[in-house]
Write a protein that binds this DNA or RNA. Structure first.
Lengths: 305, 305
DNA sequence: TGAAAGCATCAGTTTTACTGATAGTCACAG
DNA sequence: CTGTGACTATCAGTAAAACTGATGCTTTCA
């Protein structure tokens, strides 16, 4: 009937030890002394009835026992749940004037968000919408997991975690060329041809690895003359005539007269974009409505292409 | 980074108050004084920054505020998760010789389990299998939720909860008649006819309410001359010539010469049976294999019908 | 073989949690 | 409209726990 006497604090301590690899580092992170961590873990082990950690002694990192592994899985879930609770409550306390925190990526920020925010404002004039652009994709999911954002735009598929996701957009890859390039007039180009061009690429390969794999599979290892994660920068380099770029259409500034956009004649699977949220959270109606609106706006953009 | 300072004990106290309706009763249940509960809830409210409970004063039960509702949802999840953790660890500590606890219903116990257990034993001679029959269906799911069973046979659909389920058997309704009854020779009977017979029924209507609804929809309110939840008892009454019974085929003792089994010519949706487990648990390979074997055995039975 | 890095343990202190007593609130019966 | 019963808050005192700081033991690495 009554649950086991495991304390949140002890579970957090265990997680800190596992994540940092040493008791001392965990203590530092949590603002305790090493002695306190040692005692917390010992207390946990006593109530579990078995060792949770293997302490190799000396300066080697600790490792989990099988029992420890099992417990850590649950401990993480519990901590995540408490985070979700805190975030839910913060939202409730903010009430009607509550701010909806949405994390975005660069491309979404420029093409989707403006229209989306306008439509959202029409429906909920009282709700503030805080959109924050994030550089790394890991930061997007981490922010949602920790409750700093209610929603986040993310590329799919999404990492494992306590997430629910809704697909909103298929973002096909296109090639952009300098306006004066010979290919600019053709309007289309094959992947095989593209792989032979001097390319401007992305520094963070995570999102586009499938594309890279396909480029390589043409039999010609593509050469990247420059790399950046900033879409305008990439496009600027192309505009300057320094090379070509293969990028998701959403990231392209189509009004730029200095570059030409070419469709890819080879079929490359489009980048999938979705909206992500914490499964365990009880999001307000404004959030679910936001997701709906986002899907609509994205569908409209997709239809225009 | 560091999660909120909510303690498991406080969350449990809150849940006890919500479930019992008063601080005093919660204190009694948890073995504290009323004062302690009062302070625990107060501490929670302080750290949340808002009241969680509405205390109407006097002998009226407390109610949750909106914030309280939100927190309780998460608190229940956390407690359930801790239960799951404890159960997982108990299983791990038991090791290879670990017992697999399976809850069953009467009908499964007599027809499916014997064969199933034999096949399971062949594969895992070292693993003990503890099958426990339970009277009430609520006890089945509750047992799984609290970690007393790893697996449970249950009728579908299943109540809301932290459960995963696998369907294993379609169990069609049949009519059993006394061997000497005029209908015994026909081999089949319509629902309309059945509703006009003196029936032996089940006391617990939960599982069979769909059947009851269909019986009533024939326009004739069926009369039950006796009710019992014990399948052999029901069958015994039929054998004694006291009436007829509509029951899932799995619950029928088909070797009984004193009764005849008639199929229903009207289509009544069959009872669905499944195996249920706690989604959050990390069940050992023996458990997942047990589910597979159960599905196979049930399929074999189904094919024989 | 002697740092250096790491964990356990212990005694002492601070912090937290619980008890028991008391006062206050509300509903309901007389 | 007053008394009683069922309930919670609060307070002071105490019991329990959690944390610190010092110390000792173990292991790696130079």
């Amino acid at each position: 009937m009554v649950p086991p006497g495991w304390d949140t604090r002890q579970l957090v301590a265990l997680l800190a030890v596992v994540d940092t690899g040493t008791f001392s580092a965990a203590a530092l992170r949590l603002g305790y002394t090493q002695s306190a961590i040692s005692q917390q873990v010992a207390s946990l082990e006593r109530s579990v009835g078995a060792p949770l950690l293997i302490r190799p002694g000396g300066p080697r990192r600790v490792r989990l026992t099988a029992v420890g592994e099992a417990l850590v899985v649950h401990a993480r879930a519990v901590v995540a749940r408490l985070h979700a609770a805190r975030a839910d409550i913060a939202m409730l306390l903010a009430g009607e004037r509550g701010t909806l925190h949405v994390a975005t990526m660069q491309s979404i920020g420029t093409k989707v968000l403006p229209l989306l925010m306008r439509r959202f404002r029409e429906e909920f004039p009282g709700v503030e919408l805080a959109a924050e652009e994030s550089e790394s994709f890991a930061a997007l999911t981490a922010g949602v997991e920790e409750g700093r954002f209610e929603l986040s735009f993310v590329p799919l598929p999404v990492v494992e975690g306590p997430f629910a996701v809704r697909r909103v957009l298929e973002d096909p890859y296109v090639v952009i060329a300098p306006a004066e390039a010979p290919e600019a007039a053709t309007g289309s180009i094959s992947l095989r041809q593209a792989a032979r061009l001097p390319l401007i690429g992305f520094s963070d390969p995570y999102e586009h690895e499938e594309l890279l794999r396909r480029l390589r599979r043409t039999g010609y290892d593509p050469s990247f003359v420059f790399r950046s994660n900033d879409n305008p920068t990439v496009q600027g380099f192309v505009a300057a005539g320094l090379g070509y770029a293969v990028m998701p259409r959403l990231t392209v500034d189509e009004d730029d007269p200095q570059v030409a956009m070419l469709t890819l004649s080879s079929t490359v699977p489009a980048r999938q974009l979705g909206i992500l949220w914490h499964v365990d959270r009880q999001l307000p109606p404004t959030a679910t409505r936001f997701v709906e609106l986002a899907a609509e706006v994205c569908a409209a953009i997709s239809a225009r292409w």
